[in-house]
Design a protein around this nucleic acid. Sequence first.
DNA 1: CGCAATTGTGTACAGTCGTGCACTGAATGT
DNA 2: ACATTCAGTGCACGACTGTACACAATTGCG
Lengths: 238, 238
Amino acid sequence: MRSQVHSSTQMAGEPTTMSRENLSRTERKDLTRASLVRAALHLIGEGRSFTSLGIREITREAGVVPNAFYRHFGNTDELGLALVAEMGQTLRRLLRQARQTGQAQDVDLLRRSVQVYQAYVKLNRLLFLFISSERSGGSRTLRVAIRHEVSHFTSEMAQDFRRMSDYSDLSTAHLQMICGLVVTTMLAAAPEMLDLPEDQPLLEAEMTETFVQQLRIVLLGAANWRPKANRVGSALHP
Amino acid sequence: MRSQVHSSTQMAGEPTTMSRENLSRTERKDLTRASLVRAALHLIGEGRSFTSLGIREITREAGVVPNAFYRHFGNTDELGLALVAEMGQTLRRLLRQARQTGQAQDVDLLRRSVQVYQAYVKLNRLLFLFISSERSGGSRTLRVAIRHEVSHFTSEMAQDFRRMSDYSDLSTAHLQMICGLVVTTMLAAAPEMLDLPEDQPLLEAEMTETFVQQLRIVLLGAANWRPKANRVGSALHP
DNA sequence: CGCAATTGTGTACAGTCGTGCACTGAATGT
DNA sequence: ACATTCAGTGCACGACTGTACACAATTGCG
């Protein structure tokens, strides 16, 4: 009942370029490693959740034999860590682009940033799908790795906030807290954007509007907010 | 190598009371059905993610034979829907309690509500673990069910907001948007609270403080916020 | 040049999975 | 009282899984 490809070694995933020659061994290795990562992402795109992916499933999609997996990762979690690392780079790129977009004097910085974000989410659909589901779903290892990456992202954003006049007199911890709120809102919006049907620009525009309003409220609240004296330790500010 | 329980039919999960007699047939059925649900929750508590749970796994934990599962659910997703329904009830209880807690004139309504919420999350640990991971992780069916339940919760909260003087002059859609932000923040906080080590009251207090501050910012922003004219359709308010 | 290292292959095994089918025994409706 | 319904059992099957082991081929270092 199943097609049972009779052992043709080629026809791998998609090596992006038809090249498999003139490459050093390490280059070849990194290439199939990348194809494993891509295979996992592709399966996520098909609706499978990363946690439930199996080694055989991934290697089949990547066009290699199951055992080859172990030449690159000890288990699926390690592959997940590779995906997390990729997400880290993506987030850094996003922040950089948002920064230079914001540098040009803009009438509506927030809205512009939201558009950049939205474009990024759509462009890196599978990656955001991955982190959305594994952020509180999968193995503990993966969760802490993602959380670490996200908090790093939050810190960078906090540094950007420091340069903005409305928030420059807040303590680092408070900036972190505020950016945490912003990031939470952003990450929560991602899966909703991804679940949207492709051919419904109205819904999308409506969602964007809601998203912009929410962030505006957060920023407005943050600008008007003054920390109260009673902190948790309450020993600060003697 | 495995213990191979030699077919003792009893020793089911934990029927909560040692009773299995003096019950009508439908009562017995609902009882094992409940034990299936409990089994799934228990497995979630062990660190497994619901999506990756198998029928055999669940029935084994529940102390019934695999086939018995089909007398209650057609597949694991249907069991998930039962869990979602339970979450709905839990959320409604939460809102009711927060409401009556808030009715007493309180110097700090928000902080009190946060404490109620925190207590609820801890009390219904497994349920919140479930929704946190399946909200953007599992099958589409489950996701939309959860999202539906959450939006219902948001609506109820919006109605409560309507009675508060600071927000009573906002449109329903705007209230929904604001409460959506609040709910997002709440739901994002849940998994972090649950991942916290039990014996670290300092960390927990710190997290609570951050959480309170974030919500305060949201509420402050919402109170000071006035919607701009350019809505998405822009045909309203002629 | 030649040998060691390493990437990917093929085969194999034990275990788990979902689920179909025939069955049992007790509660239920008449 | 009897026939029926039906929750739960037992067994079976085929498909799929992770991974251990031996092997092939080729690259890169001495």
